[in-house]
Design a protein around this nucleic acid. Structure first.
Length: 505
RNA sequence: GGUACCGUGGCCGAGGGGCUAGGCAGAGGUCUGCAAAACCUUUUACAGCAGUUCGAAUCUGCUCGGUACCUCCA
């Protein structure tokens, strides 16, 4: 079997993955800013890294997955006073900042749960680590790489760039950076335009504020991740992840801060997921084309033709490689929905069927079909190679889909069980469980698990079977059609059974 | 303006010098009381123009088109 290779943004190439401490992996992923509701864009990184988290654990690593919650307002609005986004909104909504932050954090957690994303090992908040951030800033000042002006502290990028490669991660050239950075409020305080804030003095109207050696203020955007990753994962850890839009300046700045404080670059492997686009444009606040996750799930948005379930979105995202952009459209989502349905229905049958007792009742071949066995085992073994190749879930999915006709043919008995053989059957079952459930994190999400509903359906199915036996087509069609109207689809199978599932209306 | 990246069949998307990606949709068939589902078969492809090569969707150059980052962002 192949070894795991990951694309490291820092070297712009795929590398063999070797953890710093054998058997353990430390992974830090930049979490959401909870000043607003999570949107479709948030789904991508957290589902991507959920699969990475799951796969590393599958490989046997003990993984500490740290994902922060940015709940401290420390953003400046262009052309205005340094007013905190969170506090601005809080005034409008007449809420306490922390109340607002809590609300959106809860919503975020709820959405992650809907997506079947495993919770991270540690989920630190920026507001809970002000002390750590302040002491890191003090270290930077002591080291001579940060300076204070009017109660704010800035990182000296020019000085850092003399001895270090500032811009390596994001492919920036420092000199260009100095010239092309746009005019921003507060620039005059900085020694250099490329410098970034570590601590900002809070203007009087700023609600979120903390005491510091430099007066009351709030931390700069980049310092929280450096402080918290160091605290929970050490000076150097294995994986640092996030969206590609964070490459610059966020991750570049993190590298600079951490490198000065810890004398070692923070992460070995930088992994960045690409963006979700909508009509070819990045989804983002600045573009006014944001679809919130609650709107995705309810279908309550002008751009949406219908509601899309969390698993449909998860599947849709995993059908694409994480480093490609993924364009959203109703058509694409609906294609994903149908594909997922076919996949899960075949898989559900496979899951409940046993190798023992799977004797084909009909005639036909009773011998093992070497060609079929080889095809199945090859497709299954390739799953490991594909996921190892920089988490290529798209190829994993493709192979799984190639196995579906085999599963359905076993179900319909157009392929005799003996043709596949018990060993291959069990391999198929085990591997698909591992990949579909454990690694890709897909699950059956319909209410079809309700025992009472199951009982009711059994009654209706019996009635329909009896009607059909009497060739009472009026009754049998009535049962089928009326159920269809309320979103329950009946399917007459080849073996005379009737199965059912819930459909989205 | 600077720096990257991308342009694949009706749609979405893998791949990345010679080998069917896959999904959805379309067509034909099998099955079925009918339908659906399922299964089988199947059509449409690599933006354009040059070049390298025995051979290019894949490499190189140019052209056109698009996107991202440079400012908060997943």
């Amino acid at each position: 079997m192949s070894n795991l290779r990951v694309y490291n943004s820092y070297v712009r190439d795929k590398e063999d993955f070797v953890s710093l401490v054998p058997g353990h992996v430390g992974m830090y992923v930049c979490g959401p800013t909870v000043s607003g509701e999570s949107h479709l864009g948030h789904a991508r990184p957290y589902i991507t890294f959920d699969v990475i988290f799951r796969y590393l654990m599958h490989l046997g690593y003990k993984v500490r997955y740290v994902r922060n919650i940015t709940d401290a307002g420390h953003f400046e609005e262009e052309g205005r006073e340094a007013v905190d986004k969170i506090s601005t909104k809080a005034q409008i909504e007449k809420m306490e900042p922390m109340e607002l932050v809590q609300k959106y954090t809860n919503l975020f957690h709820w959405a992650m749960d809907q997506f079947n994303c495993l919770p991270p090992s540690i989920e630190p908040t920026a507001t809970g680590h002000i002390v750590e951030q302040i002491s890191m800033i003090e270290e930077l000042i002591k080291a001579g790489y940060a300076y204070e002006v009017n109660g704010s502290v800035y990182f000296d990028v020019k000085k850092y760039a003399k001895g270090h490669d500032y811009g390596k991660l994001s492919g920036r050239v420092i000199d260009d950076l100095l010239e092309t950075t746009r005019e921003l409020e507060g620039q005059e305080e900085k020694k250099d335009r490329a410098d970034f804030a570590l601590w900002k003095a809070a203007p009087p109207e700023h609600i979120m504020r903390w005491k510091s050696p430099w007066g009351e203020g709030f931390p700069g955007w980049h310092i929280e991740c450096s402080a918290m990753s160091t605290k929970y994962l050490g000076k150097q850890f294995d994986i640092h992840g996030g969206g590609m839009d964070l490459l610059f300046p966020h991750h570049e700045s993190e590298i600079a801060q951490s490198t000065i404080c810890n004398h070692v670059p923070p992460a070995r492997y930088w992994i960045h997921n690409n963006m979700i686009t909508i009509n070819g444009k990045k989804m983002g606040k600045s573009y006014n084309n944001v679809i919130k996750l609650t709107e995705m799930f309810s279908g309550d948005h002008p751009m949406l033709e219908k509601a899309y379930s969390p698993m449909t979105i998860r599947f849709f995202i995993l059908q694409t490689h994480y480093r490609s952009t993924l364009d959203f459209s109703n058509e694409a989502l609906q294609a994903a929905e149908k594909g997922l349905k076919r996949l899960m229905e075949a898989y559900e049958w496979l899951k409940q069927s046993e190798a023992v007792g799977q004797r084909s009742e009909v005639g036909g071949q009773k011998q093992e079909d070497e060609g079929l066995k080889k095809k199945v085992t090859t497709l299954l073994n390739e799953l490991d190679d594909f996921i190892n190749d920089d988490f290529n879930t798209a190829k994993v999915m493709a192979n799984i889909f190639e196995l579906i006709p085999v599963i359905n043919s076993l179900k319909d008995k157009t392929i005799a069980f003996e043709a596949l053989g018990a060993d291959t059957f069990n391999l198929l079952k085990d591997k698909l469980k591992t990949f579909i459930e454990d690694i890709l994190g897909l699950k059956q999400e319909s209410a079809a698990n309700d025992d009472k509903l199951k009982g009711v359906m059994q009654v209706l199915i019996e009635l329909r079977k009896e009607a059909r036996a009497k060739k009472d087509w009026a009754t049998s069609d009535k049962i089928r059609n009326q159920l269809a109207e309320i979103g329950i689809q009946l399917k007459d199978e080849k073996n005379g059974n009737i199965s059912w599932n819930l459909t989205s209306l």
